[in-house]
Structure formats: C-alpha cells, structure tokens
Design a protein around this nucleic acid. Structure first.
Length: 243
RNA sequence: UAGAUGCAAUGCGG
C-alpha cells in the first residue's frame, strides 16, 4: 500500500506526511488507523492535533475527540475551532456554545462556525445576535460569514439587517460572488422588495445556477409566473443548465 | 513544495 511504501523510504517520519495520513484514514472512516499513526508520531504540531481531533469527531466519537483536545499542551485557535465544530456536527449545541465562550481567542472561523450552528438549528435570531457581537470585535467577516448572515436575514424577513449587510459589502468593496449574490437576491425577495432583488441580479458580474434559481423563485413567489418562465428561457439561452 | 478547523443561496422530497 501507499502508506507502507512511504514508511520504507523514510518520508513517513515527516510530520506533514504523518498528518496527511491521519486525515487520509479518517476520510476512509478508518479512525483506528488514524489514531495509530497519530500515536506513533514523534513530534506533533497544532495541525497534527487538530487533525486527530477532527478524525475522532467525524467518526462521531466526541469523547475521544475531547480527550485528545484536553491532552493537547498548547491549544491554538484552530484546535478550539475543531472541537467546537465537532460538537456542532454531533448536534450538541450546548457544548459547542460553552467551548466557544471559553475560547481565549476567536478568529473568523470560530465566529462563522457558531453562527452557522445557530442557522442549522433554525435559530436565526441567535445567529444575528452573535453576528452583532462579532461586529464589536476586531475580527472581520469573510464571504462565508456574510452569505450565512444574509441567509439568516432572509429567513427572518429582517430587511433592515439585510440592507446593512449589503451596505457593508459596498463600503468594503467586498466581492459579490455567486453565493453572496444569490443570498442577497433571496433576502430581498423574501423581504418583499423584488425590485431590489432584480437590481442585484442584473448587476452581478458572474451568474451561476444559484443566482438564476433565486431570481426565478423570487419572481414566482411574488406571483410573476410569466416573468419567471421568461427568465427561465433566458437562463437556458445563456447556456446555464437547469437542475 | 506538501498536512488540520467554518463551505455558505433556493425550492422540492425523505
């Protein structure tokens, strides 16, 4: 096997290579093998520890994930993020919240993980509250955070906060990609301002199926069946494959 | 050179 070959020529001792194997076995659902490689490592850096924690968490074994986390000598933010995400995936929101609160430092991934956690549980209000808290920190949201928050606004029909996000995008000259674009279109449509949804749509530099779906759905939702069908034809003419 | 943690729009179905 590949692993055996790598061990023979000595590359197997390199920490990056070993970490890649821990992750590789984890992706094959072979967490026992992951752990074996991890246990045999002579030196472990933050990546190695995080990878092992993630491997246990992916396997649904939060107990082991937590033990590895607790054993880690100098935890970094990514490691904290890994265990928080582990609890999120396991549906244990309380533990995720508790660890999030106890983190010494939070980066954009920490915040987005937790905001996403609330959205997955349809707790959009909490998601927006947490985002408000994030705004009072130095950590700037990135495209994943923004798309998630705009979607939360759409679910709540929170037009004012949605507009605020849009304004923030303009002010910071944020690139409006297909995810953010379709989230904005959907948000404006759900908040009852179809005109704004259309303006966003037509101004998009790059449109993919997501954007077309959002605008077609918005038209249909507001009773513009003919316009929705016309938009669908236009989409096909632009060689976008419907799904 | 190379390894880890959030991957996000919408509708429908389970």
């Amino acid at each position: 096997c590949v692993h055996g070959q790598v061990l023979k020529n000595g590359l197997g001792l390199h920490v990056h290579v070993q970490t890649a194997f821990v992750d590789f076995y984890s992706s094959l659902c072979r967490v026992v093998e992951s752990r074996k490689v991890f246990d045999e490592m002579h030196e472990r850096d933050g990546f190695a520890w995080s990878t092992m924690i993630s491997a246990h968490a992916r396997a649904g074994d939060l107990g082991s994930a937590r033990r590895v986390f607790d054993e880690m000598p100098e935890k970094n933010t990514a490691t904290w993020n890994t265990i928080v995400q582990g609890y999120v995936e396991a549906g244990d929101m309380e533990s995720a919240e508790e660890l999030f609160c106890r983190m010494p430092k939070r980066d954009v991934i920490s915040w987005t993980t937790m905001i996403n956690c609330y959205c997955k549980h349809k707790q959009y209000r909490e998601a927006l509250e947490l985002f408000d808290e994030m705004k009072s920190t130095e950590t700037r949201p990135d495209e994943v955070t923004i798309a998630t928050v705009i979607s939360a606004c759409a679910h709540l029909g929170a037009l004012d906060q949605g507009k605020e996000m849009h304004l923030y995008l303009m002010q910071t000259r944020f690139n409006i990609d297909v995810y953010i674009g379709s989230a904005l279109i959907d948000m404006y449509a759900k908040c009852g301002v179809l005109e704004r949804a259309l303006v966003v749509f037509f101004k998009l530099q790059e449109k993919n199926l997501f954007c077309w779906s959002s605008v077609i759905d918005g038209l249909a939702f507001h009773g513009y069946a003919e316009e929705a069908l016309a938009m669908f034809d236009k989409m096909e003419k632009e060689k976008i494959e419907p799904n």
